[in-house]
Amino acid sequence: MMDGTSATAATTTGYNFAYLDEQTKRMIRRAILKAVAVPGYQVPFASREMPLPYGWGTGGIQVTASIIGQADVLKVIDQGADDTTNAVSIRKFFGRTTGVATTERTIEATIVQTRHRVPETKLRDDQIIVYQVPVPEPLRWLEPREAETRKMHALSEYGPMHVKLYEDIARYGRVTTAYDYPVMVDGRYLMRPSPIPKFDNPKLDMCPALQLFGAGREKRIYAVPPYTSVKSLDFEDHPFTIESWDEACAICGSTESFLDEVITDDKGGRMFVCSDTDYCGERRKESGDEPA
């Protein structure tokens, strides 16, 4: 059932399937296998200049380009939505360079490339999610030097991160990190989940789908295999919690999804709607309140 998918007829000629040359794909594929074998460890790779700017998803794009095949169905989201301009642009890029089917429906996708969200719909074990990562190093704001952070990972020396979080608690009564909240992968590597809201962190834990992370500008690839423990850092007396809203989605009524705040006028009027547009649309369909 592929009713939500659309195939792009004409692919851009003059470039290889999925844009990258085969040697580059091999290099990235080798890096991906290492990343899967050492969950949470950031594998350095020779990131290429892509026809999209660094910082705009080039890492995710290189990962997707290296795994995607003709039978895949691709979904691209930014901020949870399929129709944000950068998501549209990246989807178009793959449409032009691969001709593979694309979809806006999470359940139809074999590969989901995302920036800043994990879909609300639970992922399956035949799916792969590719995260676009701006800064892969969880220790970077504590220690700017790569040579040093590399040593800290080698020795599992994550004390400074705990101290930083605990200082937050001492000062503000809570951890003040709201997104890109650090996690421990399989009890060994400290990892950045990319700038997803911490609301999404629990979805990474024991997720049935393979999770791949690509940082193009910083030239790192890392991975979380399916069914792998991913624990958000916390303390016994201050367990990890996720945010909640007093409001429900103004469109579908969901009280369980991550909500975006929309300013409706200049008098303080605002409303809240699902950030995951596919989830929201599906809920409206189910309730018979289908958009015109």
């Binding site: 399937f17 085969e22 794909k25 899967v36 795994i67 095949g69 003709q70």
Partner: peptide, 19 residues
């Protein structure tokens, strides 16, 4: 078909590494 056979072989390997 070097492009698509490589991709299919890699995906089989990736699936095996992931599980």
């Amino acid at each position: 078909d070097p492009v698509h056979d490589s991709q299919a072989s890699f995906r089989a390997a990736l699936a095996a590494f992931a599980r």
